[in-house]
């Protein structure tokens, strides 16, 4: 316990000292970023499943605050995080606006002759809290793991090998493909190509996409050949090892306690009701 609190305190002090410097944002002394990625993945997974089960406002509110706490502790750049949270919210905004009007119940207000119900409003708030608690926890715990480490951690968690390698290959080659796309695009621009709403544009973009597909296909064949040259026999080897430290143990226990408390609160409400 002293471990985590001490470090969080140090991180806070550090944040104040260099509030505006990149050093503070990417500092290694931020405890969340030092946690074992496996612990972080499992924690988010369990937390998400638990939050989806919650239906009462009190435990949901606490879960929401928990997510917010983690997000603040992860010290992500504020504007970027806000944008990401809002992106997710934009997916459900229509649902949230419609719910009060479509759920039958006690009338709360009426707009243009359509009546909104308290039950619908409550439902909307429940969904909003649920979604945001999960998004914030994921942002804090998962978005701070880089993609390669994420894949390696998934492999250690016994996620099917094929999925892990699909992810790792994507991470590896998406930049190569992107560079290829940029090269082709620049070459097109250099020959005076200006996209517009005409057949020539559609045709040219079609060629561009087709060329990218062919090139990726050929590249994949060359990669397989290069792998064969090094004795590839269908087996991949991941060498990364993770350490499960005392800090991870402490975090796991606190996370367990938190999730159990949320579930207990939900149950108590049910019994009381």
């Amino acid at each position: 316990m002293s471990d985590i609190l001490g470090d969080a305190g140090r991180a806070k002090g550090l944040g104040r000292a260099e509030a505006n410097s990149i050093g503070a944002i990417f500092s290694h002394r931020l405890w969340i970023r030092e946690l074992d990625p496996r612990v972080r993945i499992v924690a988010v997974f369990v937390f998400s499943i638990c939050v989806v089960q919650l239906d009462k406002l009190l435990p949901l509110g606490i879960a929401f605050l928990g997510g917010l706490f983690l997000l603040l502790q992860a010290r992500m750049p504020f504007v970027t995080s806000l944008k990401r949270v809002l992106t997710v919210d934009s997916f459900i905004i229509l649902l949230l606006v419609m719910l009060p009007f479509t759920t039958p119940g006690t009338e709360m207000a009426s707009v243009f002759g359509f009546s909104a119900s308290y039950e619908g409003l409550r439902q909307a708030i429940v969904i909003l809290l649920r979604a945001n608690a999960i998004v914030m926890a994921s942002l804090a715990l998962l978005a701070t793991i880089d993609a390669v480490t994420f894949g390696q951690a998934l492999a250690k968690l016994k996620v099917p090998e094929r999925l892990v390698h699909l992810l790792l290959f994507t991470v590896r080659y998406v930049e190569v493909l992107h560079a290829e796309y940029l090269r082709l695009k620049t070459a097109m621009k250099c020959r005076g190509f200006a996209p517009g709403n005409n057949l020539h544009t559609y045709k040219s973009v079609g060629y561009l996409v087709g060329m990218l597909l062919i090139r990726s296909f050929e590249r994949s064949e060359r990669i397989l050949m290069a792998m064969k040259c090094r004795g590839f026999n269908g087996q991949f080897h991941l060498l990364k090892d993770f350490d499960y430290t005392r800090r991870d143990l402490t975090f796991s226990m606190i996370a367990c306690l938190f999730v159990l408390s949320l579930l207990a609160l939900e149950m108590l409400h049910v019994v009381a009701a």
């Binding site: 894949g151 991470v171 590249r219 990669i223 087996q235 990364k240």
Partner: peptide, 20 residues
């Protein structure tokens, strides 16, 4: 880029010997 497909340099170099 055709040859190096593993996440890290260490893993890529170990790939051949492990296959052997």
């Amino acid at each position: 880029d055709d040859q190096l497909f593993c996440p890290t340099v260490k893993e890529d170099i170990a790939f051949g010997p492990l296959n052997l």
